[in-house]
Nucleic acid binder design. Structure first.
Ligand code: MN
Ligand code: MN
Ligand code: ZN
Ligand code: ZN
Lengths: 144, 144
DNA sequence: ATGGTAAATGCAATATTATTGCATTTACAT
DNA sequence: ATGTAAATGCAATAATATTGCATTTACCAT
């Protein structure tokens, strides 16, 4: 849903300043192939000659989450950029407990089902998160 | 699935020692009405005149998670004791973003659905976690 | 009951992660 | 160009987590 350019658009549209730190963090998220922590981001930028204070990164990530430009991967404790084409408010992962391999996906049917169950409890769900924890295809063959 | 007594049984059966700290932590988890962090647990016990080192609590909680006697609530960063009657390896929550209200539930149909999707990616899922984030019935009425 | 032993805990040091208040800088509108 | 609110940097502090090693404890065999 959000690549670098459309994320920039969201920021602009909602009246947030297009600052250099925000663009740099957005770049790192967009390029990352797996979840990155605030300090991961700092390191990556360090290597590119950019020095961002960690407090700034925390604040930027908080904002991005608020705007749904990014979100936390729960079991990793890190932040990822939402992948293209995912459903709104639907953030699902499969994580390999052995090698850490991670895939993000979205599934409308799951959300509908979850919404229904929530309704029975009086809840109204706005964001869906889920993580399947297990073994990826590579790791299933091996013996541990 | 696991109340205090059956948790004790699990520990005994698997050959883990039935130590005082383990029993105390288990008690706190069993009585807790919401997720508790390691330091939360320490505080509760403190008030009961029990002094546990935080390192010990971390190690005990790691063990409990390994044995599925407890697990982490992802968005809270805390630990909860699994509720009675839940499916094996299925840990689902609804969390109110306003008041923090939390409900745990399990749902076989959701797990089946998730397993199928995982299979398409070659994953084999062992543990299911999910969190619906939104508003509880109380908080839906109010204006924020 | 007593003693031996592996397992578990406590402690101290250290590392990592996160938050706050305030001074300074920057993006953007005028 | 200039003014201004917003954002960032910095320093201090807080909260959370991990490691190695000394000591204690639960449990088993006697
Ligand atoms: Mn997502
Ligand atoms: Mn559970
Ligand atoms: Zn794997
Ligand atoms: Zn609520």
């Amino acid at each position: 849903m959000f690549d670098f350019q459309s994320s920039i658009q969201v920021l602009r549209t909602k009246g947030y300043k297009l600052t250099r730190p925000r663009k740099r963090v957005l770049e790192v998220l967009a390029q990352a192939q797996k979840p990155v922590s605030p300090y991961d981001i700092q390191k990556v930028l360090q290597q590119r000659g950019e020095h961002l204070n960690h407090v700034t990164i925390y604040r930027i990530l908080d904002l991005f989450c608020l705007l749904n430009l990014a979100h936390k991967v729960l079991s990793f404790g890190g932040f990822v950029k939402c992948t293209l084409g995912e459903e709104e408010g639907c953030h699902r992962f499969m994580v390999c407990r052995q090698c850490g391999a991670l895939r993000e996906f979205a599934d409308k049917a799951l959300c509908d089902e979850e919404n229904e169950i929530a309704q029975d409890f009086g809840f109204r769900t706005e964001q869906h998160f889920s993580e399947g924890f297990g073994l990826c295809s590579n790791c299933q063959g091996q013996i541990f």
